[in-house]
Structure formats: structure tokens, C-alpha cells
């Protein structure tokens, strides 16, 4: 596996890592086809073509304030961006910007979309809005407290919304339904579905993950983290849930009935700063992890250890994203440096 630590102004290719210096906090990263999108604290979205990394990225002015969330849209090459100007913006493939929704004085904090079913959802305060066809009025889903995260299940039919004291599960295509309520006391933030759709997991404000097995409502409580878990990812076949929040990548086994009563496996890191971002490769059994000191590693649970992609440089990793072929990894940082590592054989 190739490594490199090229940094600097503008963008340069050196070794197998290309670095872009955008100069503002990377709030999110997403991929759609061969296009990477990076949302920044200055309200712009930068589009990077993963096939032509030496080309100048396209800068799109999406928000008047800061960008807060970013997702691939349902159409190829398009993205959705939410900001603290209250706008949900769609970036069409040619870079045109379309405002899909706007709420004064409110922030659009979460956005997601499912290409297969064509549903989009975004969260603002306590409300989640579901958009099907563009132009149709959104469906509003209300919750008792502010939304901590949203996720559409792998089949594209259900939406999980995390908030205080649990998760609400909504059917996307059925109107007027009451949500199924998954309860657990505390503040639930990021929410995720297992690839088979059998489990819903949340990262909590406490240094813990919580999970529910939907078939019987069985609870899973995963604790022992050093800090708040800001990132978690299921491996492609759902065998492991990998998570940040500790000095090593913590991987909970989800084979054979779930992680209850089992110890997690670990990789990467050595008792130093915590893991701040993780993302599973879409095609291979490998997980990319970024640390608060800027280190990026690839690895997997078990004795195989990990491979260094980028050495520590003091610039915390905020987001990670693989291309669909799983051979290019984009990493965003707090300072606005964005690294794209190319793992294709030379």
C-alpha cells in the first residue's frame, strides 16, 4: 500500500496522496460516482473529480454562513448540502445550485438521500422533512426534541431519526403513520443501520454506543470509550461495527446474534490521541480511520494490524470517504486540508 504525506498550498501530487488546501474546517465529505464533494465551514462545497486529481476542484457557493452537513443526492453526480443559513441546497452535476428549502433562523443540520428509492430527508431542529420527487411539498415528521442524526435503511424504505431518549423509525412511503419508538435514556447523536437492516445503532452524548435489534427490541450497550464517539461505520457485509472515540479503532462483532456479551476487537493507534473518523471500504474488508493528530490508517479487526496512510501532523481528521471502487480515500481536516490517497496498483 502506498503512503505519502504531501502537504502545501494549492494542490500537489506527491507519492500516492494528493493534498488540497481549502483553508476552512471540513464539515463533511460525500461521494457520488467519481465525484467527491467536500463541505466547508465557509459555506462552499468543493467538487473533486477522483479520476483527474490534478485538475482544479470546482468551488460552489452553497451557503451564506457555514455548511453543516453534506450527502450524495439520488441522481448521479449530484449532492445535497445543509447550512446554518437555514438552506437545503442541491448541487446539480454541472455545478448549478438550487435551493430546495429555506427556514429563517433555523439550521439544516442533517441530510441524507437514498439513490435506490429516490427519497431525501433533512433535519432542522426537531423536524425532519422527507422529499420524494423534486417540486412536491415535503412531508414533515415531528419529534419531541432536537434531532441528533438521520439515516435511511439499506432498502430505502425506513428512516431512523435519533433524538433525546431514543430513535423514531418512520416508513418513508406511508403517510400519517406514527413512528416506531426505540427508547433509551440519554442524548442520541449519529444513527446508523446495519447492512442487513436488522440493527439500529446510535452514538450517544455519553462515551457510549447504543443499539437495538429490531426483531425483538433487544438492547445493546457498548461502553468504555475515552471520549464522545463522533464516527462509526459498518463493514461492508456487516460483520463489524467500527467506531472512533478511543485511541484505537473499536470494532464490535455483529455476527452470531450481535455484540452482546462479546468483547470488541481493536486495531490501529497506540494509546495516543483518539480516533475521530472511520469509514468502511465499500468493496474490501478494510476500514479507514483518522485520528485527532492527523494520522490516517487502514486496517481490519484481528491480528493483521494496520497500514499507515498518513503520519501525524497535528491536524485533526473530521471526515473520511471512499470512492465506489474502494481504491481512493478522501480525508478532510479541521484546517481545511483535504487529502486523497490513491491505492490503485501502479
Amino acid at each position: 500500500m502506498a503512503t505519502g504525506t504531501n502537504r502545501g498550498q494549492g494542490h500537489r501530487s506527491g507519492g500516492r496522496v494528493t493534498t488540497f488546501s481549502f483553508g476552512d474546517y471540513v464539515v463533511g465529505a460525500a461521494v457520488n460516482g467519481q465525484l467527491f464533494a467536500v463541505g466547508l465551514g465557509d459555506g462552499t462545497v468543493r467538487l473533486i473529480d477522483s479520476e483527474t486529481l490534478d485538475a482544479e476542484p470546482v468551488t460552489v457557493s452553497a451557503h451564506k454562513g457555514a455548511g453543516l452537513c453534506l450527502s450524495a443526492d439520488v441522481d448521479k453526480g449530484a449532492f445535497l448540502s445543509g447550512g446554518d443559513d437555514g438552506k437545503l441546497v442541491r448541487l446539480a452535476p454541472i455545478g448549478a445550485v438550487e435551493v430546495l428549502a429555506e427556514t429563517k433562523g433555523r439550521w439544516v443540520e442533517h441530510v441524507t438521500a437514498h439513490a435506490g428509492s429516490g427519497f431525501r430527508a433533512y433535519a432542522s431542529g426537531k423536524d425532519v422533512f422527507v422529499l420524494g420527487k423534486l417540486g412536491a411539498p415535503p412531508r414533515k415528521l415531528s419529534h419531541p426534541t432536537s434531532v441528533g442524526g438521520i439515516a435511511i435503511n439499506p432498502k430505502g424504505r425506513r428512516l431512523a431519526v435519533s433524538h433525546y431518549n431514543g430513535v423514531s423509525l418512520w416508513w418513508l412511503a406511508t403517510k400519517d403513520s406514527e413512528p416506531v419508538s426505540l427508547q433509551w435514556q440519554g442524548s442520541h447523536l449519529q444513527v446508523a443501520w446495519s447492512p442487513d437492516g436488522d440493527y439500529v445503532l446510535t452514538a450517544m452524548q455519553e462515551n457510549a454506543l447504543h443499539g437495538w435489534r429490531l426483531s425483538d427490541g433487544e438492547h445493546m450497550r457498548m461502553t468504555g470509550y475515552d471520549t464522545k464517539v463522533r464516527s462509526m461505520t459498518f463493514t461492508r457485509r456487516g460483520h463489524f461495527l467500527a467506531s472512533g472515540g478511543a485511541s484505537r479503532v473499536i470494532c464490535w462483532p455483529f455476527t452470531g446474534g450481535g455484540p452482546m456479551g462479546k468483547a470488541p476487537q481493536e486495531f490501529g493507534g497506540a494509546g495516543g490521541p483518539p480516533v475521530t473518523a472511520v469509514v468502511a471500504n465499500p468493496l474490501h474488508d478494510v476500514i479507514a480511520a483518522g485520528f485527532e493528530d492527523g494520522t490516517i490508517v487502514l486496517g481490519q479487526p484481528g491480528p493483521g494490524g494496520s497500514a499507515l496512510v498518513m503520519k501525524a501532523n497535528g491536524n485533526p481528521i473530521t471526515s473520511l470517504c471512499w470512492n465506489p471502487d474502494g481504491d481512493k480515500l478522501l480525508a478532510g481536516t479541521e484546517s481545511g486540508d483535504v487529502h486523497v490517497a490513491d491505492f490503485r496498483p501502479i
Binding site: 432536537s146 440519554g186 455519553e206
Partner: peptide, 14 residues
């Protein structure tokens, strides 16, 4: 644009 509304949502940790 630096004025933002809050909901005073209090919750108990731990």
C-alpha cells in the same frame, strides 16, 4: 447571521 435560536433542551447524562 451570528444570532441563533436555541430550544433550552435539558437532558440528563449518565
Amino acid at each position: 447571521d451570528l444570532v441563533v435560536g436555541a430550544d433550552e433542551e435539558v437532558f440528563e447524562m449518565n
